[in-house]
Design a protein around this nucleic acid. Structure first.
Lengths: 202, 202
DNA sequence: ACAGTTGTTGGACAAACGCGCAATAGTCCG
DNA sequence: CGGACTATTGCGCGTTTGTCCAACAACTGT
């Protein structure tokens, strides 16, 4: 096979793994799957990664962190705190739609894969920090009322996770649109916004 | 091995599987694990169940349904709608504490195990129906205000699921007590109860 | 050009998986 | 007692898994 620089090769392995876990989940992705996707031998993967756990954790980390960074950029483009919060739900629902099985697998597999568990925890906390910041800035601007912004951020994040589970694992019972609307309504109540504030964006 | 009646044997297999999935999750439980737990051969399991998917689905069904029935009984003992709703959180938090890994595995494995997927969906819906009934009866009694009881039941169920994920998969970030309090507060807002109504039970 | 280093191969390896099957042991009925 | 039936055994089959390793190929510095 054509030779790459070590950095390029490592990135290519991670990219192939990302593609695969997005397509078939984390739990169902094997070393040989990655090698086939890359068009290389399976031994090469272990030349760059100590274990499958490490590779899965890093691939999940890249995918989740890219999602988070992209979301931060989109959200930062909102004109005011309310619009930024509305954008939070836009990007979250969209990204959850594509990669919910990855999240479910990450949560479940965390019990059996130490590296994946560490990554999953950190990513989760970063989403909470992002949401917490949005709420606090809304309160400082005086457009939101929040008696307990920490509790609110955890509640909204949990609600959104839970609704994502409903649409993914129990697809057909709760639709994506319902989950989107319900999570916005719940957030409006949390931060004292009038109903419809987060949904009436052009 | 000592012989049982077919019914007894079948129940013993299910009981052993329940024990195992509670201890090590659904995904990590194998045919041989069940046979060892029972003290029988592995071939016997396939004499009573067509596939491992079927066995796991039935064991999960029993465990989840038993939890649900026991919860219904406890909840029904509440004097009024508010106390019954408070009891909902008591039993839910307690059962989630023991078996959260089972739920995570059920959600994640549902994508790869058809029988488990059907069972998981049904159990989830039964919890929602239970919660929906509690809310509606509170509204009919005039002690709760609910503009949209269906949406409320889905939101509360999703919130408690999401908070359970936070305490299980990301243990240490959100504690069980915090999750308990936060889910009650959220429910109080949903059905128009004064803060503290669901927590001030003896 | 040559030696040394490192990327890469392809397959061996042991362990574990779900499942099936011939043989055995236990039960029941005539 | 004896034949029919079924529960149960114990093992083997084929596959798949993560990991490892000796050999080969390619690049580097002298």
């Amino acid at each position: 096979m054509a030779r790459m620089t070590p950095d390029q090769r490592r990135e290519a392995i991670i990219a192939a793994t990302r593609e695969l876990i997005g397509r078939q989940g984390i739990a169902a992705t094997t070393v040989r799957d990655v090698a086939t996707e890359l068009g290389t031998s399976s031994g090469l993967i272990h030349h760059y990664f100590d274990s499958m756990d490490d590779l899965l954790a890093e691939a999940f980390d890249r995918a989740a962190t890219d999602d988070l960074r992209a979301s931060q950029t989109v959200i930062a483009g909102g004109a005011d705190p309310v619009q930024r919060l509305a954008r939070f739900f836009d990007v979250f629902v969209r990204s959850a739609d594509d990669s919910m099985q990855v999240w479910l697998d990450a949560w479940a597999e965390a019990a059996r894969r130490p590296a994946l568990q560490r990554t999953s925890r950190r990513v989760n906390q970063e989403w909470q920090v992002l949401l917490y910041g949005l709420i606090v800035s809304g309160c400082e601007a005086g457009v939101m009322t929040c008696p307990d912004p920490l509790a609110s951020s955890w509640r909204i994040l949990s609600l959104v996770d839970g609704l994502a589970v409903q649409t993914a694992a129990h697809s057909g019972i709760v639709t994506r649109n319902q989950a989107d609307i319900w999570s916005r309504q719940s957030a409006e109540v949390e931060v004292g916004l009038p109903l419809g504030s987060l949904t009436s964006h052009a």
